[in-house]
Design a protein around this nucleic acid. Sequence first.
RNA 1: GUGACCGUAGCUCAACGGUAGAGUCCUGGAUUGUGAUUCCAGUUGUUGCGGGUUCGAAUCCCGUCGGUCACCCCA
Length: 451
Amino acid sequence: MQKVKPQLLRGFDQEYLPAEQLQFNHLVDVTRRNFELFGFLPIETPSAERQEILTSKGAADKEIYALRRLADADDDDAATKGALRFDLTVPLARYVAMRERELAFPFRRYQIQRVWRGETPQANKGRFREFYQADIDIIGREKLSYLAEAEIPSVIYSVFKDMAIGEFRIRINNRKVLKGLLEGFEVQQENAASVLRILDKTEKESSDAILRSLKSAGVLAKHAEPLYRAISEKRDTEQTLGALAKFGFANETFKGGLEELKSIVTAIRQFGVPDSAFAIDLGVVRGLDYYTGTIYETALVDYPEIGSICSGGRYDDLASYFTSTRLPGVGISIGLTRLFTKLKEASLLKPLPRTPAEVLLTTMDHQYLDKYLRMAAALRAAGINTEVYLETAKLDKQLQYASRKEFRVALIAGESEFASGVVQIKDLAARESRTVPIDNVVAPIRELLKK
RNA sequence: GUGACCGUAGCUCAACGGUAGAGUCCUGGAUUGUGAUUCCAGUUGUUGCGGGUUCGAAUCCCGUCGGUCACCCCA
């Protein structure tokens, strides 16, 4: 028979061995637990949305995968109007606009789901066509306290601290400050976007290259260098606030932005985020122009090459395409697939058991099946995850299986044990076993598992 | 979308014009009830695909498909 070659689609290639999947699930669990710790509510939205919803925010068409039947029969118009979501923010906007009257505001939601993007994948950069995002957003109705912007870093802090993946830094900037800065340096409104994109590259490119680009993007020659220095100079949070005060631009955007930034810094500290974990950094720019206030970007201190593992910001109106209610919000997105891939690469993942079960019950002699299964039922009733070896195989094979899957404990019983009413409890890591009465296995196993 | 490079066993790679190989992994065994190591044996390929050059092509040429990396953009 002709075989179909088993292979994956480019970019749709993130599937793991069970041991890795358990580690990924752990990352998801930690994320979810911390989101809930701050009162965020879970939602999921369908994988596919109507195309006009997805493109409403001006996403490039080529990024989006549309739905089509293989058979191409035109009897399913409804489905062909759909496409896969490329982020979780647009579906959120649609969701909130549809359910405005049923939701309690400020609406705090989290959502951990896959998204799909038609980009060129580059695994070394953690870029795929299908990947997980873990988003939180706080959506206000007509208004939203600046405290929401200050709380976000404390959630990020909580998540990554709990993940225990090493030192990380949340870099924070303010879009108004940036805009005011550009205004102060006499950058024309229509050049602002391209100038910001250039300034976003200060860490990658040489100062000469940046200065040249800035000038050709319409920055006056006398301002190019001061602007570059303002953005790229290394300073801590206090130094940055000091430097901004010193610029002292008179425009309202700058003054308002600076005041806002100061209050947010104060609040971030009140939320308990240590100065070692966050920093105001004027070099954080973010290409997306719907951000209007605080913007965030988080990276691992020892692994800057991993890039941003979490980013987001404040926006003025989430769902202006769908409703005339003004819905200001703030949100961030953790790129879980990227994070996981890079953590794996850098060996930063803590070792986890390779099986969710703790006990393997070996079955040396199937004539005692009844006893084996009753023992397993008793263990499970006591809350101990237990797998029964169902195949007929020699004991050494069963133990090999146990050690390969990294069970903590193996139970061994055959003719001689059953004759004297006992069972062997084997500590697989310590390679030693002891004998206990068959009707008293739970307590000794619990004891062993506690170690 | 633009450019550079690369496709040989499940995986990592060798052979670079003269019969397609190694390591690893996997399977079985080493006196019948205890996982490591070691030893023995075994399975695995239209050399991505199509065409051309040649007595002869995994190797050279052309095309095609697939992949990797850089740019763009982003998680």
